[in-house]
Simulated scan of single mutants.
Amino acid sequence: MQNSSPIGIFDSGYGGLTVFKSIAEQLPQYNYIYLGDNARSPYGDHSFETIYKYTLECVEWLFDKGCNLVILACNTASAKALRTIQQKDLPTKYPGRRVLGVIRPTAEVINTYTDTNKVGVMGTRGTVNSESYLLEIKKFYPNISVYQQSCPMWVPIIENNEHLQNGADFFVKEYCDALLAQSKDIDCVLLACTHYPLLLPKLKAVFPDYINILTQGDIVAKSLVNYLQRHPEMEMNLGREKQKSFYTSGDPIVFDEHASIFFGKKLASLKM
């Protein structure tokens, strides 16, 4: 184990910055490296094999940068690559390192946000088709019914900074209406893509007031706090200089232009 190890945060693009922002707010003392695989994003429509390959390459890059703990702040990567990495790659090649995702922490607490036990999940095609949320929530809460809706247009709208413009209204309403048509008793909607919190103003305008709209940043951050408390052997090796580094597989100038929308401040990223 390397002393002064940073925590790695990975996403296929920009969305993981919304999770990183929450993590950094709750755990400001540690060092972090964020990697966005913008050159190959979005991941949502790729096959399991392709997403696993891309995700593993990026995780290994973060390992090479000294990260012993990596958070997949990406629902698609968590759904399609995390289990294989945890079960196949870590035990054989990286036994002292850990990779965590965003799906399990969310599934563990979803019951606290619903009274009707009817939950909607909105995500990319990859996340929805994987049925990861159906399976994980069922493990913890067999009495909760999960209704899924893929939203393929939302990520392109957000990454082109069109999410608050009038042109986004049609696709926001189309997907929300399609979800609610599956059950009139849905009272909790999980935004199962880390891009989607940027659509919150429009989603709140479309969904009835009684529906809890659930984002993942604070949930994942609290789960990480708990994880480090339970694993002091991992926590004791983390660097504490409050350093944050940002990398992208794409163009750093383009990344920085868009990333501030997600992270809330200007960034100066480097090429992967």
Rank of each mutant, 00 (worst) to 15 (best):
K184L: 07
H231N: 14
P156W: 05
L200Y: 04
P42D: 11
K202G: 01
P95Y: 08
H163Y: 14
M1P: 09
K138S: 09
K204E: 14
F20I: 00
L203G: 04
W154V: 01
I211D: 10
V102A: 03
K244D: 13
A39V: 04
N226V: 04
N143L: 13
G217F: 07
I33T: 02
M272G: 03
S4G: 03
A205Q: 10
T215G: 06
K202T: 04
Y52W: 10
I51W: 12
Q149M: 12
A168W: 01
H195C: 03
A39R: 15
T114H: 08
H231I: 01
T127L: 05
E60P: 02
K80E: 08
F255G: 00
S132C: 14
L199Q: 07
T116M: 10
N166Q: 15
R125W: 03
L69P: 02
K53C: 06
G123E: 12
P105Q: 08
V146I: 14
R98K: 12
G44P: 04
K88S: 14
D37T: 08
L56E: 00
N3C: 08
G66Q: 07
S245T: 12
N38Y: 09
S132E: 10
E257T: 15
E25S: 13
N161D: 09
Y141D: 01
E60C: 08
V146F: 10
P201S: 08
I23Q: 04
F10L: 14
D45Y: 09
D11F: 07
L200H: 01
R97V: 01
L200A: 02
Q29L: 14
L17K: 01
F263E: 05
T248V: 13
P91K: 13
V254H: 11
I103P: 00
E60M: 12
A181Y: 05
M153Q: 13
C58P: 00
N161V: 04
G264I: 14
F246W: 09
D45C: 08
L100Y: 04
I71Q: 08
C193W: 05
D209Q: 15
L203N: 05
S12H: 10
E108N: 06
L191Q: 05
F263C: 02
L100K: 13
G44W: 02
I71W: 09
Q2P: 01
G217Y: 10
G13N: 07
D169R: 12
F246P: 02
F140W: 12
R40Q: 14
F140T: 02
N143R: 14
N38R: 15
M234T: 10
I85D: 05
Y141M: 12
L90V: 02
V155Y: 03
P252R: 13
I211L: 10
P105Y: 11
E60G: 00
N212F: 03
I137Y: 04
H231W: 03
M234G: 00
S223T: 07
L100N: 11
E162A: 10
S183C: 12
S145W: 09
F48M: 07
T50S: 10
F207V: 03
Q26H: 13
R83T: 11
T76P: 08
W61I: 08
V146G: 06
Q182Y: 05
A221D: 01
L100Q: 09
Y32S: 02
T76Q: 13
C58R: 03
L214V: 15
Q182I: 10
